[in-house]
Design a protein around this nucleic acid. Sequence first.
DNA 1: GACCCTAAAAATGAATGCAAAAATCCCGTA
DNA 2: TACGGGATTTTTGCATTCATTTTTAGGGTC
Lengths: 229, 229
Amino acid sequence: MPKTGLSKDQQAHLQLSDGNASLHGNLVAQIRAILVDGELADGTRIPEGELCQRFNVSRTPLREALKVLAAEGFVVLRPNRGAIVAPLDPAEIQPLFEFKSALERLIGLTAAERASDTEIGELEKIHLALDAAAVDGDYKLYTRLNYMFHRNLAAASKNAILTQNYDVIQQRIWRYRFIVNEYEKRCQESFAEHERIIIALRARTPLDLAERLEFHNRRTAEAMSAALC
Amino acid sequence: MPKTGLSKDQQAHLQLSDGNASLHGNLVAQIRAILVDGELADGTRIPEGELCQRFNVSRTPLREALKVLAAEGFVVLRPNRGAIVAPLDPAEIQPLFEFKSALERLIGLTAAERASDTEIGELEKIHLALDAAAVDGDYKLYTRLNYMFHRNLAAASKNAILTQNYDVIQQRIWRYRFIVNEYEKRCQESFAEHERIIIALRARTPLDLAERLEFHNRRTAEAMSAALC
DNA sequence: GACCCTAAAAATGAATGCAAAAATCCCGTA
DNA sequence: TACGGGATTTTTGCATTCATTTTTAGGGTC
C-alpha cells in the first residue's frame, strides 16, 4: 500500500481471490478489463497515479503491467510521454479479423476432433442461454455469453498457445464494439451461424466446422466494416 | 547506471543505436536473444544481478522486460522464487507447430496477393544465398537465412498482427533446435520445398502457396518429432 | 554420516526517491 | 484577444531502498 506503512498481511485482503498470483499479474488482467470495457477512452493518457490509488499499488508493479499490455497491443508506450490507451483505428479491424480467421480455422479443425462430450454439452448450454438472452433482448448478457461460447470452443482445441492468442485477439477486437455494436443488428443471423457450428461440432467434421467458424468470423467482420461506412 | 551518480547523458552512450527506444524496450529484445540463443540454459534461474551488470541497468527496467518475456512465453515467473528460462518441453513442440501452421496458411493466402515484386525479388535473393550456404555447409548462415526467408514472407502479408505473432512463434520454436538440429539433415528437402514456395509466390496462387507453406511446416515438425524418438 | 532445526545470507517483490523531460501556467507583447 | 516564452508544476523513467521470503550454512542429535 503506497504512502503507508501497512504490512503485506494488512494489504492481503485487497488482492483478488487468487492468492498466489503476483501483484503485477492481477494488475494486467484488471487493467486490460478496464481498457476493453472502455472505461478509459481510447487514445487518452493512462493515469498512473489514479490507477495506483485505485489498486493500492505503487508505480512499479503498475508500470510492469503496462509494459505487458503494450506487448499485447492494448496500450501504446510513448517514450518520455507515458502510456496511452491504444487508439482505436478502423484500419486495424481488417488485419485483426484476418488474423482471427486463421485462428478460427485452426480451432475448427482441432476442436472437432478433440472436444470432449462434456465440453460440447457445455457449449450447447451456452448456445441455449444465448437464445434466451436474444429473446429477452438482454444484449449485455448475450454479448457475454457469445464471448464465452467462442472462448470455450477455443479451449476445446486443447492447444494452450492457440487459446491464449485467441483470447487476446478476441479482446482486442471487442474494443471496437462501440464503433459498431453489431450484436444488436446481427443477433439472429449470428445465432443461426452458431447453430450450424454446434451441428458441425457434434458431427465432428473438422473441415466443416472450420468453414463454419471462418464464415461466422467473416460475417461479423463484414457487419463491422459496413457499420463504418 | 546503477550504484553510480552518473547523469542520463553520461549513461546514454551505453544504449543501443535506436536512441528513442526506452531502456526496457531494448532489454526485451536483448534478453530474448540471450534466451533464444541458448546462452542461458532452459530451466535455469535468470540471474537478475548479472543481467543488470551486463546491461548496466537497475533491476526495475530489467524486471519489466522479464514480465513481457513471460507473457511471450520465453520466461516463467515463479512467485517469490524469481524467473527461470522457460523449460524446453517436447510436449510443447506439437502445439507450437500446430499454431504456426495456422499462421503459415494465412501468410500464404495473403502474401500471394500482396507481396510486391521487390519483396519477391528479395526472397529469391535469400533463396539463392540459402542454396550457397547449403553447398558451403555453413549451417549457421543457412539457419539465419532460413529465418529471414520466412520472416520476410510473413512481412509480405502486410498484416502487422500476423507478422508480430509469427515472429514470436518462430523464436519460441527456434529454441528447440538444440534438441534436434533438423537443418543439417533436412537441408536439401527443405530447399526443394522453398523452391516450390517461391514458384507459388511468383505465380501468386494463394491456395497453392498456403499449402506449400503448411506442408513445409509439417515436414519440419515431423523431422523434429522424429528426432525425439 | 544422515537428519533436522535454527540463524545468517541472499534474492525477491514492491515502495520510495530523484533527476530529466513534458506539460501547464503565467504574463508580457502585439 | 491571440500569441509567444520562460518559470513552475507535473509526469516520467529509472535507481535505490526496504520488508519478506527463500535459500544456504552451520551445528547439534541420533
